[in-house]
């Protein structure tokens, strides 16, 4: 039953992805090892769509992943399951809001969860690089110099002070044009 499986997977993500949208990426990279809804390589497309459409990125990713698994209804189930845990948690703590955020155990565990999540996201990004750039036609390791140079160039440009405020959708459009021109 794909909808029940979607519910279980995305409820888990909603419960354990702490730190917002990007924190869901490691979990989304994990799913293809268990389910055949999409491949690790598809995560790159999901990211591109999520970054260039309105709405929170985490929600967009869930909708896309669910859509890949079971169409339109799959997207709805995945998104609902993703937000359900936080809905429950927030309703429970809304009354003791101050106590919650000032609790020393909460503060201390979040102090260590945050760097751990950064490490997990770093792994996910390594995976994205692997599938998006370093994997050739038959799944073999390749090293396309042009793509690597382009990626480094984009990274540098994105960190130039004056260009920092530009929207990700702008960079994605640039990438699409370069892709078409150079037949990537």
């Amino acid at each position: 039953m794909v909808f029940l499986e979607l519910f279980i997977e995305f409820f888990q993500i909603g419960l354990f992805a702490i730190g917002g949208g990007p924190a869901t990426i490691p979990f989304l990279m994990d799913i293809p090892t268990r389910r055949d809804w999409y491949e690790v390589a598809d995560v790159t497309n999901m990211l591109a769509v999520s970054e260039s459409t309105p709405g929170p990125i985490g929600i967009n990713m869930a909708t896309y992943a669910g859509f890949k698994a079971a169409g339109f209804l799959g997207g709805i189930v995945a998104t609902f399951s993703l937000v359900l845990p936080s809905l429950i948690v927030i309703v429970l703590i809304a009354k003791i809001l101050d106590k919650f955020s000032k609790n020393k155990y909460i503060q201390s565990s979040f102090g260590t969860i945050r760097p751990a999540v950064t490490g997990l996201i770093a792994t996910a990004v390594i995976g994205i690089f692997q599938t998006a750039i370093f994997t050739g036609a038959e799944g073999k390791f390749v090293f396309p110099i042009f793509s690597v140079v382009l990626c480094v160039l984009f990274f540098v440009l994105m960190n130039v002070k004056k260009l920092k405020k530009l929207h990700p959708a702008f960079w994605i459009l640039c990438g699409a044009i370069i892709g078409i021109v150079f037949k990537l």
Partner: peptide, 29 residues
Amino acid sequence: TVAHAVGGIKIVVCALMLCTVVTMAKKTV
């Protein structure tokens, strides 16, 4: 054409994700 565009977009997504990790590392580590 769409496949080529996606090929270029993938590279940008890699660079965007690298930025995300760097920003997060600055904030959390």
